[in-house]
Design a protein around this nucleic acid. Structure first.
Lengths: 231, 231
DNA sequence: CGCGTTCTTATAACGTGATATAAATTTGTC
DNA sequence: GACAAATTTATATCACGTTATAAGAACGCG
């Protein structure tokens, strides 16, 4: 907010983000063209490119504009650290559960947007600090092994989260299957990093969550003998 | 190969796949347009659409055309089952390490190709039988808990693999960081599903692999206090 | 005020993936 | 060999993301 020029620019930026959000909600993925976006934002076609650089960047900005995670998380402080992590993951999933149409369209658009050289902060969101605190708490209370580098563990948890979301976006997971899948993945990785004490806790959760997961292997025709497979 | 018509069609199909593969190798992702592909395959622009349906489908066909996994795997039979799984994962990674330019371009194209309603077999490749055998062996030898549903565990391992590959394609992981990242993720999940005996084995591997992983948290400015985060 | 800078605007253009159409060609069958 | 069916072909067209261009407006500064 230095110049009046910059405030006008910021105003245009947020107008574009809002227009994109509304367009996705109204018309879904399909209706979101740059021409429609510019019209809806009351702006020229070139402006989103000036301010963001590409369609993908606009959509990433939409994603980053969605906040309020910490607020809803206030009430978990009494639980043990591992349980807190699972609750936090569940809370993260709930964002998608609350508005699946929007998020699916958003991610579809982001993935479909043409290739770019972006220094993609798509995945490098600023959640690290929050989650690192949770993990470090678990180490301090003797539930995770001190040998484990929590930063690397966190990245591994992120991998699980993203992959399940991508699977939901691209293929045919039902939205209600996401929560147990994420919970299971998190519990499994946490048990892999846990002390004996933490392992007991996670094993209980694993059994519960496993029962909630749809078993992919129940198709009667599983091909057991083809070693000639694709990478 | 019933009719002569079908053989000609199959021949055209494989000519298109080969042309796509060659085009990616020669010009990278950028040079692969449907017009260039049709020209290189000696075929009309409409033909790839007739035979495959979309650009994405062509690229998926290219991916599925790459085989030979089982052959290279013959020699691991003397190792313990968990170690075999880690070796197999490493072998899968080696495909990408051997030709990173090609695979990155291929995946970029697949992700960037316009949205589609495909019953995406992109990820549902036919590797299940091979990996299920490995996991079941580990259960039978008392290294993994019998409570664990190996099908769900396998899907979880797949999540890790895909996510790391996607991360490599989209963002800036170095190709040499993939192998430890995949190994760590697999060892972590396997330890999470392991018996005490299996856990000891995996913990050793975890420590080694952890040391090979680049630590994402070593940036001096880690923001610890922002609970206001993005989902 | 006036000048220069910066940015938006309007518009045209390019190459793209995809689709539609009618003509040409190939194939299987009689 | 001739006919019918199917499909490739050639071509035109569409909407899209993106870029380039020139013209105009808003601003900071003297």
């Amino acid at each position: 907010m230095e110049n009046r020029r910059d405030t006008a620019k910021a105003e245009r930026r947020s107008r574009i983000i809002k227009a994109a959000r509304d367009l996705i909600r109204e018309t879904g993925d399909a209706g979101l063209s740059m021409r429609a976006l510019a019209a809806k934002a009351g702006v020229s076609l070139a402006t989103p490119y000036n301010l963001f650089g590409s369609k993908r960047a606009v959509l990433v900005a939409v994603l980053e504009d969605i906040k309020g995670f910490g607020t809803r998380f206030a009430s978990f402080k009494s639980l043990d650290p591992l349980e807190r992590i699972l609750r936090a993951a569940r809370l993260a999933v709930s964002y998608y559960e609350d508005d699946p149409v929007f998020y699916r369209a958003l991610w579809t658009s982001i993935l479909a947007a043409s290739a770019s050289e972006e220094r993609s902060a798509i995945f490098n969101q600023k959640r690290d600090g929050f989650w690192m605190t949770l993990l470090d708490d678990a180490v301090n209370e003797g539930l995770l092994l001190p040998d484990i580098d929590t930063a690397i563990l966190l990245r591994n948890l992120d991998y699980t989260f993203r992959s399940i979301m991508l699977h939901w976006v691209i293929a045919e997971i039902e939205i209600e299957d996401i929560q147990p899948a994420v919970g299971y993945g998190y519990a499994l990785a946490l048990r892999g990093a846990a002390t004996p004490k933490g392992q007991q806790l996670m094993l209980k959760r694993l059994k519960v969550l496993q029962a909630q997961c749809p078993t992919p292997g129940t198709k009667s025709s599983r091909r057991l003998a083809d070693a000639e497979t694709t990478v």
